[in-house]
């Protein structure tokens, strides 16, 4: 088992897994970081992104590289309805926000079950080539996911770090009163943040739908992985989500390969428990201060 080809394949698998986890976790950690809402509906927005891509590809015959961001933006725009009618009154209200998004998630999932049906379906593979580099096997669709995840992460980081809206969002996240005193329209920036986060979830959902399969219930596992990633990296931290996603992907890949799937599952949650005990704020998170 401990041969070089197997080790290399473990790394390739781990990086691929990590890329998907990072994409999902980015929006999730952003909503918590800025609005202080643990968004249980994040997986449902990913599911909608998967279906949006499916219909754009299959019915509207939009090319994949256009359909993917277009679907994500459509879902992001639709998510503003949820922001307006469900979340707007719950900002910085973690418990109620959690319950409300849980309800929102159930409504979205079962509406999707009624509208789209419960059978699984597959987004036709746009990139079906499989590359063999010696003993290494790399499917093209995974390389595409890797590329899109890397570009998205970079753009997202640049936006938050170097643009005025990004700076305003970070200020509103750190101190709402100070932000408003500086003339920042916090409500508008919350809307923008929710739009971006939901679009990111939908983008991830489109890629997940193509790599795996589409169903109204497909968001549950990515949501659970997002939790693990942001707990590892620190709730609200973008570099934390990136590192957490990569760590989880590599851990799952290596543990499953060498010790089996059950051990990997157990270890994922074991690591989270350890992090929560030893460093509750995660690797890059900030400790909460008592007022």
């Amino acid at each position: 088992m401990l041969s070089l080809p197997v080790l290399a394949q473990v790394v390739v698998n781990g990086v691929n897994l990590g890329a998907i986890y990072i994409l999902m976790a980015l929006g999730f950690t952003m909503i918590f970081g800025i609005m202080r809402i643990v968004n249980f509906a994040h997986g449902a927005f990913a599911m909608l992104g998967g279906f949006a891509l499916y219909f754009l590809l299959m019915d509207a015959h939009v090319p994949f590289l256009l359909a993917l961001p277009l679907g994500a933006l459509l879902v992001g725009a639709g998510s503003l309805l949820a922001e307006r009618f469900v979340l707007r009154h719950l900002y910085h209200n973690e418990l109620q926000g959690m319950i409300a998004t849980l309800g929102l998630s159930m409504v979205m999932i079962y509406l999707a079950a009624i509208v789209f049906g419960v059978s699984q379906r597959s987004v036709p593979a746009v990139y079906s080539e499989i590359f063999f580099f010696g003993p290494l096997v790399v499917p093209m669709d995974r390389l595409v996911v890797l590329g899109i995840a890397a570009v998205t992460l970079l753009l997202f980081f640049l936006f938050m770090r170097y643009t005025k809206p990004g700076l305003a969002m970070r200020v509103a996240a750190q101190d709402l009163e100070v932000a408003e005193a500086q003339g920042i329209n916090a409500a508008a920036h919350y809307q923008a943040a929710f739009f971006i986060a939901s679009s990111l979830a939908a983008l991830a959902g489109g890629l997940i739908g193509q790599l795996y399969a589409l169903s109204p219930f497909m968001g549950a596992t990515p949501l659970m992985k997002s939790f693990i990633v942001v707990i590892l990296g620190g709730l609200g931290s973008i570099p934390g989500a990136a590192l957490g996603g990569l760590l989880l992907g590599m851990a799952e890949s290596s543990l499953t390969t060498f010790f089996g799937a059950s051990t990997a599952q157990l270890a994922s949650f074991g690591i989270v428990m350890l992090v929560l005990v030893l460093r509750p704020q995660g690797l890059f998170g900030h400790a909460e201060r008592d007022s």
Binding site: N13, S254, T257, G260, A261
Partner: peptide
């Protein structure tokens, strides 16, 4: 032989182990 969790979506690590 391998037993996986029902929520698993990515089986590539498990299958890499199998291929060996």
């Amino acid at each position: 032989t391998e037993m996986y969790d029902r929520s698993t979506k990515d089986f590539t690590p498990l299958l890499t182990r199998m291929m060996a």
